[in-house]
Design a protein around this nucleic acid. Structure first.
Length: 648
DNA sequence: ATTAGGG
DNA sequence: CCCTAAT
């Protein structure tokens, strides 16, 4: 009677701890996510705000894209200055409207310079190293980071330059025509879909966004994206890219950063959304503790809730993945219409200056990756470098004709930013909030490729001090190995994840060489001016997916068999102690999925198959420990212990 | 910081 | 994996 449900524990000779830990099952659960208010302001939001607040309509409504046309009528007439992307650095002259796609990073930071060869990646030198030949990859010159939609608004006639990023690397000239074609086709699709009735559902939302000048680019992208997202009922999907329907974001990340910043980001997003419903009283209850994400009043429809939630999600994603180009587009429609040359005489105080910041220009990136690194690791490395640029909290500087306007209290007109002036010469500068770190403090690694360095004149060399990625493998020798299993798992990793190691090493050694504020030459390009590398990036990335190997599963099963469920920290310490990317939450989650996997038919299982033997052990351990927890609960509640359930 | 549970 | 309430 008492033997039941042990299921082979004894046969494995494992001793079962006398008492399970008190389960914390009493802990509350909830499925609603309460949003909190926050005041976080992010650099690019700030910039977007700068742009947004300066933006209003020009007199010519015909230029207003279809979606915002109606709303435009409501607004008073204003002036617009279109700051198109400029290239402060001398570059190879290319024909206009050439699509030098430059997709930076993994999450969908898209950059398509439509002007010139802004993203010339050249294989500059082959320095042979002792172990590996490193390929020096110089992402040269300005990489225009811009809303992909914008980039696609103008048809690409040629595809020059190199696209480095989420969807692969294409060497100049090698870009497939199919891709270019796809990009071209994206635009009509965007416009069409926006023109039809789909917009209605979110109309009020967009409306609100419009009013505070926040570019609804995000929402727009949501429309343009594909529908295979699991939240497609909202019509929203991933915030990026038209050119790849199979977009599976390659995330990277630092769990700690994420943990620290995630709530911040959410708060900010919430705050912003809330701020976008100024007069509609949609924000009622937002600060109510008990209220859910109820932006629209007491009874938000399910769909609506989902839409809103998705907005949040996309908001966050936009923060993370397309931080550069995000929200730089200021019109609801994806139509790219140029406001250049539309300056009008300053007739009234009511006129606004409309600054349309379409893109940021990343001056230069210098990246080193081993030849045997994967594309994925390259993407992550690029993203890493980009993230580093973003680190440290950016502030915005405004330069007019190359001169920075220091006085924040000056009006635009006083500063000379007026429609009758040459507004083409406005630059925005992004600087680190804390620029204490002097350039001298920046280390120049020995392995720096100076061959490339001399190409890129005034340079700040940013060495990554700590690897962006967790080094779960590289430090085995330094860490004591507490559990034998840890050792084995480590070994296992070094066997199974060599590429990951490579990418991490790469990441740790990757350098970014970025020009320090080149004299802002002409037309409104935004020079990103990284002066420091101090503060952690606000960019939060989803962690890269790392499926559990069989070895890991086995280690997990064994640990849980010994320690029980609900002691995930202990499990982690026992079996995954030096596997940094496996948190105890991960282990708990994995156990959950293992239990589920074990309880479904093999035909229903997906992914790498787990040996049935392991799954059996999972089930037995789960059953055993559940029973233990139940017993304990009963004891705690003073109930008589239930008779043990025995199988027939 | 951990744990539990829903997504 | 993510997110977050409750410990």
């Amino acid at each position: 009677m008492v033997v039941c449900k042990r299921l082979g524990y004894g046969s494995r000779g494992r001793r079962i701890p006398t008492m399970p830990r008190v389960p914390n099952s009493a802990r509350g659960k909830r499925s609603t996510r309460r949003k909190k208010d926050g005041d976080d302001m992010y650099a690019f939001d700030l910039l977007a705000t700068v742009a947004g607040t300066l933006i209003a309509d020009q007199d010519n409504p015909s230029n207003v894209p279809s979606i915002s046309a109606a709303k435009a009528k409501k607004r008073k007439s204003v002036k617009k200055v279109h700051l198109d992307e400029i290239l402060p650095l001398k570059n190879v002259a290319m024909e206009k409207d050439c699509c030098s796609g430059c997709v930076v990073g993994s999450g969908g930071v898209c950059a398509f310079g439509r002007q010139a060869n802004n993203c010339l990646v050249e294989n500059s030198s082959k320095r042979s190293k002792a172990e590996s030949v490193l390929e020096s990859l110089t992402v040269k010159s300005n990489m225009l980071i811009r809303d992909s939609l914008v980039s696609c608004a103008k048809p690409c006639e040629t595809n020059c330059g190199l696209e480095c990023g989420a969807y692969g690397i294409h060497h100049p000239g090698s870009s497939s025509s199919a891709e270019a074609e796809q990009m071209q086709q994206a635009e009509p699709e965007v416009i069409r879909r926006q023109a039809d009735g789909h917009v209605a559902a979110l109309d009020s939302l967009f409306d609100s966004m419009d009013q505070d000048g926040k570019p609804p680019a995000l929402a727009k992208v949501q429309y343009t994206a594909d529908k295979d997202d699991d939240e497609n009922s909202s019509g929203c999907t991933r915030p990026s890219t038209i050119e790849n329907k199979d977009y599976k974001p390659q995330y990277l990340g630092n769990h700690r950063i994420r943990k620290l910043l995630a709530s911040k980001v959410r708060k900010a997003a919430c705050n912003k959304i809330c701020g976008r419903f100024p007069s509609k009283k949609i924000c009622e209850g937002m600060s109510n503790k008990g209220s859910k994400l109820n932006l629209c009043g007491k009874k938000m429809s399910t769909t609506r809730q989902k839409v809103q939630r998705t907005i949040f999600k996309k908001k966050r994603l936009a923060h993370h993945t397309s931080s550069f180009g995000k929200e730089m587009l200021t019109e609801a429609s994806g139509t790219s219409f140029s406001m250049e040359g539309r300056n009008k005489p300053c007739e009234s105080e009511d006129y606004h200056v409309k600054l349309r910041i379409k893109s940021f220009s990343i001056p230069e990136l210098f990246i080193e990756v081993p030849e045997n690194a994967t594309i994925g690791s390259l993407k992550r490395t690029v993203m890493d470098v980009v993230n580093r640029i973003m680190e440290g909290g950016l502030r915005v500087g405004v330069l007019l004709q190359g001169k920075e306007i220091q006085d924040d209290n000056k009006t635009l007109r006083q500063a000379g930013i007026c429609h009758d002036k040459k507004l083409n010469s406005i630059d925005f500068k992004l600087e680190c909030e804390r620029g204490q770190e002097s350039p001298s403090a920046v280390t120049i690694p020995e392995q720096m490729d100076f061959l490339s360095a001399d190409i890129v004149e005034p340079l700040a060399r940013m060495k990554c001090e700590e690897p962006f990625f967790e080094t779960e493998v590289g430090n085995d020798s330094q860490q004591p190995i507490p559990a034998h299993r840890s050792r084995s798992l480590s070994d296992l990793y070094s066997v199974h994840c060599p590429v990951e190691m490579a990418s991490q090493d790469t990441s740790a050694n990757s350098q970014a060489i970025v020009p320090i504020a080149p004299a802002p030459s002409d037309v409104g390009a935004l020079a990103i001016v990284p002066l420091c590398k101090s503060k952690r990036s606000e960019i939060v990335q989803r962690r890269i997916r790392r499926p559990f190997s069989v070895g890991e599963v086995e280690a997990l099963v064994e640990a849980v068999e010994q320690l029980g469920t609900g002691r995930w920290r202990a499990v982690k310490m026992l079996a995954f102690d030096n596997i940094e990317h496996r948190t105890y939450v991960d282990l708990k989650d994995k156990w959950k999925t293992l239990v589920h996997t074990a309880s479904i038919s093999p035909q229903q299982r997906r992914g790498a198959p787990v040996p049935q033997e392991l799954l059996d052990r999972v089930l037995s351990a789960q059953a055993y420990w559940s029973q233990q927890h139940a017993k304990l609960q009963d004891k705690l509640h003073g109930k008589a212990p239930l008779p043990e359930i025995c199988p027939p």
